[in-house]
Amino acid sequence: MRLLEKLRLRYSEMTEGEKLIYNLMTKNVKEFSLKPIGAVAEELQISKTTLMRFAKSSGFNGYAEFKQALQEEELLDSSPAVKLKKFMNNHVILTAEKIRQQEIENIHHTFQNLNKEDFDRIVDTILSTNSIRTMGWGISSYAAEVLTLRLKLIGLKCETLQRRTATLVEEVSRLAPSALFITFEFRPYMYEVLDAVRLAKSRNMTLVLVTDTPQCPLIEFVDYIFYCETETEFFGNSLIGPLFWVNLLTSEVIYRMKDNIMDTLERQQEILTNLRYYIP
C-alpha cells in the first residue's frame, strides 16, 4: 500500500496538528516534499517536534526518512504510463484550460522554489567568467541549448556540451577548471550525465544544477541547485518551468549588462533587418 493511502486510512485517528500536516501534503505532494521541515512548521504554525512525531507515528525513524519515502513515491508516480492510467481510471476530461492551468502552476512553483541569494550569485558568476558550459540529456538538453543561445546572443562565451564524436565525460575532461558548468537534468536521470558532473566536481568547476526533484543523484556534487516544476498530464516532463527559469536568468543578466551591451544588440539588429537573410 502506498504511503499516502496508509495516511488517509488513519486520518480519523490523527491529532489536529497531524491533520494540518496531511491536508497540506495532499494539496501538492511534490511541493511539500521539497520544503525543509522549518518551512512546513512555519507555514502551519506548528512545532518541528509535531512534524517529527507525525513521521514516527507513520512508521519512520524520523522526518528525513519520511520525507525521502514521500519523494520516492512521487518519483514513481511521474512516469507517463502511470499518469495515463490514473487519468483514465479517474475518468478525467482533458481540456485546454486544464493544461493551461498546469503550466501556470509549473511557473508559479518554479518561482516559489527559487533561492534568490544563489540566483544572484550565479548571475554574478556569469558576468565575471569567460567560460560557460551547459549540458543536458534528452529533453533536458533543450533547456540547456536555449540558455546557451540566449547567452551567446548577448555576447557571452557559452557552449552546450553534446554527445556527438565523444562522450559527455570526454567533453568535460577538455574543459578548463575555471568553467561555470550549468547542467539541466530531469527524470529519468542518466548515468552518463552523473559521471560527467562527478568529473567536473573533481576538477573544481563551479557547478549549477537545474532539476525537478531532490531525488536527482547529481545533487551531492553541485554547488548550486535550482528546482523547476515539470508536471504534465501525460508526458514525462514539461519544459515551461525550466524555460521560465532560463528566461528569468538571462533577463537578469542582460539587465545588469545594460550599460555595456547596446553595441552587441545593435549589431544583431543589423543582421535581423538584412533582407539577404530574413524575410520582412
Rank of each mutant, 00 (worst) to 15 (best):
F54R: 03
K67H: 05
R276S: 15
D263A: 12
L199A: 04
N23E: 13
E231V: 09
F87G: 02
N106D: 04
S79L: 09
I225E: 11
K19H: 04
Q268L: 11
R267Q: 09
M135Y: 03
N61L: 10
L199E: 11
Y278L: 10
Y142F: 14
F235D: 13
L168R: 08
K35W: 05
K152Q: 14
I104P: 01
Q268C: 04
L199V: 02
T160W: 00
A64V: 14
L153W: 15
L7E: 04
V208C: 07
E270H: 06
V197S: 05
T125N: 07
N274E: 08
S141E: 15
F87T: 05
L243S: 03
E74I: 12
T129F: 08
P36A: 07
T49G: 02
T110D: 01
Q101E: 14
H109E: 12
P242A: 08
S251P: 01
V172H: 04
N90Y: 02
E65G: 03
T206D: 14
R163F: 08
Q215G: 15
D212R: 10
P36D: 02
P80G: 03
G59M: 05
I225S: 02
K83V: 05
K35I: 04
S33N: 02
L127Q: 05
D77S: 01
N23C: 01
Q162I: 08
M88N: 10
D118S: 12
N237M: 06
F234L: 13
L3C: 02
A69C: 08
T50I: 13
E185C: 09
A166F: 11
Q101M: 13
Q215W: 05
K56W: 10
N89W: 00
K30N: 09
E145D: 14
P217V: 06
F87M: 12
L175N: 03
F186C: 05
D259E: 12
I261A: 03
L151E: 07
R150F: 01
S141R: 10
P217R: 01
L76I: 04
F87L: 14
Q71K: 07
T50S: 07
V92D: 00
F226W: 06
F87W: 11
A55Y: 03
M135S: 03
I261L: 07
T160P: 01
L175R: 08
R163H: 08
H109M: 11
R276C: 12
E170T: 15
L94E: 13
K201E: 13
K116V: 04
M88C: 06
L168F: 10
W137H: 00
G155W: 04
R121H: 11
T26M: 07
K116P: 00
Y142H: 11
A39H: 10
C158W: 02
E171M: 11
L151F: 02
